[in-house]
Amino acid sequence: MIELQGLEKTYHTGGVDTPVLHDINVSIEEGEFVALMGPSGTGKSTLMNILGLLDRPTGGKYTLGGVDLTALDDNQLSTIRNRRLGFVFQLFHLLPRVSVLQNVLLPFLYTEPYPADAKERAMQILQSVGLGDRINFKPNTLSGGQQQRVAIARALINEPAFILADEPTGNLDSVASGEILDIFDAIHRKGRTIIMVTHEPDVAARAERVITLKDGRVASDERRR
């Protein structure tokens, strides 16, 4: 479970303080599907970066599974990212020079010990997202929707507790978006926690909880189902 208590984030640039997040108090239970909405520049991405352990808050507390993360160093945070978090980005972020399969295996570069069944797991996941026949393709030979499915497979390879998706359909047409969202639904049904940033209300409608940020504060927090 994720717990944010009085979370603050202020950027210091050139002697000027720019506050981005104020007093964020949110808890997200295991297995929830949360959409994070709000106008541009309200701190959604900053919050996602903090949730994803890529950035540190300047105040407040972030606990993950009862562990206070503010006290951990970069190595420890890296290990948690590797084992417990899966990222899906708007721009897919696939390595163009390696195959679909190698892209999915990428997180295992940093996993100790390296799983003996790595390849089998990757093939299985690729099959489950409908790309079982594309494992040796280079990413740039695939459609946008297919590339995003590769990225989702990569996010799932280490069986993370949390999937952090930053506008995963932002670069896709409506058909591909629908496919991606169906996959997220399926992942969610299997019990994974999904936190997804989106601009689009119909995408957010897939989530069971919508948190809206405004000017760096939580403006609303609604459970739909």
Partner: peptide, 17 residues
């Protein structure tokens, strides 16, 4: 704690070394 949380705690503890 859920199993996932337990796993997370052990990961964090391992990482905390």
């Amino acid at each position: 704690m859920t199993p996932a949380e337990l796993a997370l705690t052990s990961t964090a503890k391992k990482a905390a070394k």
